[in-house]
Simulated scan of single mutants.
Amino acid sequence: MTQNGSHIEEIDTNRPHPARIYDYLLGGTTNYAVDRQAGDQLAAAAPEVRIGLRANRAFLRRAVRYVVGSGVRQILDIGTGLPTSPNVYETAREAAPDVRVAYVDNDPIVAAHAGTLLGGSGATGVVLADLREPQAIVDHPGIRRVIDFAEPVALLLVAVVHFLTDEDRPEQIVAALRDTLPAGSFLVLSHATGDFADRSAAQAVYHKATASLNLRSRAQVERFFDGFDMVEPGVTQVPFWRPDTPPPARSGEIGFYGGVARTPGAVRVGG
């Protein structure tokens, strides 16, 4: 299925979908029996998965507050998944009421639920598009309605790039998006890893899903930030990126790296 030149997944309730598995593991209700079964299998294979997903959401909220506090008023959230409160828009608006957010996902169910929740405000937009076609995202009229690429943008790629295979050339995809960002912009990225435990059984759960899980090392995740200036503390396990509360128990087991970086030449505001 295509829309505006992009490859879009058709609704498939017979196979688990990463966004719906994620929703189930976070306690959401927008999921199906196949997603719940996959989520239970994933939790059995990786017992820290629920802690990790919550830590990833907390990292996202801290990173959003950081970039908005640094002066950015536009956020492009690709691979948004099913809306979980507080969502990106709610978090950003707590810091600045004039923030605009464009959400992108390739699952029609995600787009439908996000569109219903967020409404038709000019400050938000929901677009059905695929990360594997970055130029189509940037050129999409729904994105251009919300995002002005002449002004700084915070690009969020949170828990999505690990669904790209090496054959998808993920480094080139991230670089293509980077090259659309003006000075003063940010990249917020998190990515699953097998650095702390053998997670081949967890990967196997996704063999029957609509997207595979591709674990990468810290060095591989750091390469996604090529061409950016890293914000301290660099790429780290998500609970340890600028924590504002004590990290949860078993944080050292969490298989998610996260980091925030700015485009070169940006004025350093907020640390």
Results as ranks from 00 to 15, higher is better:
183 A>W: 02
180 T>E: 14
190 S>A: 10
168 D>C: 13
152 P>D: 06
201 A>Q: 15
172 Q>D: 15
180 T>R: 15
140 H>Q: 07
209 A>P: 15
167 E>K: 13
213 L>Y: 11
134 P>Q: 11
206 Y>S: 01
174 V>M: 04
154 A>V: 06
166 D>N: 11
148 D>C: 08
146 V>W: 02
187 L>E: 08
165 T>E: 15
165 T>A: 15
172 Q>C: 04
164 L>I: 09
197 A>Q: 03
197 A>D: 04
203 Q>M: 06
212 S>Y: 06
143 I>A: 03
188 V>R: 02
211 A>G: 08
176 A>D: 15
178 R>L: 02
210 T>P: 02
136 A>L: 10
208 K>N: 12
154 A>P: 02
190 S>C: 12
157 L>Q: 04
161 V>A: 11
162 H>W: 06
207 H>K: 13
139 D>N: 09
209 A>Y: 11
173 I>G: 03
183 A>F: 01
163 F>W: 09
148 D>R: 05
210 T>D: 10
207 H>S: 13
196 F>G: 07
141 P>V: 01
151 E>Y: 03
139 D>F: 08
162 H>P: 00
213 L>K: 07
176 A>E: 13
193 T>W: 06
200 S>T: 15
154 A>W: 01
187 L>A: 05
181 L>Q: 00
202 A>H: 01
167 E>N: 13
214 N>R: 04
143 I>Y: 00
153 V>N: 02
179 D>F: 01
177 L>H: 06
170 P>R: 14
208 K>E: 13
169 R>G: 13
174 V>N: 05
163 F>T: 12
155 L>K: 06
189 L>I: 14
139 D>V: 06
195 D>G: 08
135 Q>L: 11
170 P>F: 15
138 V>L: 12
212 S>V: 09
144 R>Y: 06
184 G>Y: 06
185 S>T: 02
211 A>I: 09
196 F>L: 14
213 L>P: 13
145 R>V: 02
139 D>H: 11
135 Q>D: 14
201 A>I: 11
204 A>Q: 14
177 L>P: 03
137 I>Y: 05
160 V>W: 00
206 Y>V: 01
